[in-house]
């Protein structure tokens, strides 16, 4: 019985270690992409995907760790994971919108309509853009 339990714990330890390493590796790769890719739009890919998945894996490892210590299920880390998975694309979209607005340097040519300040709903030149129903 005891050896069986020890084996099970080892198994969980092993899985935890793998999950933690995968998570940390993806987090690192995301930041590496942020540091080394060429233009802003390419750099956007690293943090939105790799870092989100990396932190997700770490949080799942945390769920596993605290749930197997005999103090009952601990699922609240899932909330942070969910929150990150919902917010990461939203902030990426807003960032790329801001970048198109500022016309930052890009390797691929952005479509002209997206860079046109008039097409961008409220316009950029007006200090106090008129309120419109969107």
């Amino acid at each position: 019985m005891i050896t069986n339990l020890g084996c099970g714990l080892n198994m969980i330890d092993f899985m935890l270690a793998i999950l933690i390493l995968i998570g940390a590796a993806f987090t690192f790769v995301g930041s590496l992409g942020l540091a080394r890719l060429e233009d802003f739009y390419s750099r956007l890919h690293g943090p939105t995907k790799a870092t989100t998945l990396g932190v997700g894996a770490l949080l799942i490892a945390s769920v596993l760790y605290f749930s197997t210590r005999g103090e009952g299920l601990s699922l609240h880390e899932i909330l942070v994971t969910l929150f990150l998975f919902i917010t990461a694309p939203v902030s990426a979209h807003l960032l790329s919108k801001a970048a198109l607005h500022l016309r930052v340097h890009s390797v691929a040519r952005p479509p002209a309509e997206a860079e046109d300040p008039i097409a961008d709903q409220r316009g950029s030149s007006a200090a106090h853009p008129p309120e419109q129903a969107s």
Partner: peptide
């Protein structure tokens, strides 16, 4: 936008550090 993206990444990294 690069700096904002870096800040965004930084706070996600901080979450990872806290979880660890």
């Amino acid at each position: 936008p690069d700096r904002i993206l870096a800040l965004d990444t930084l706070y996600i990294n901080t979450i990872a550090l806290l979880v660890l």
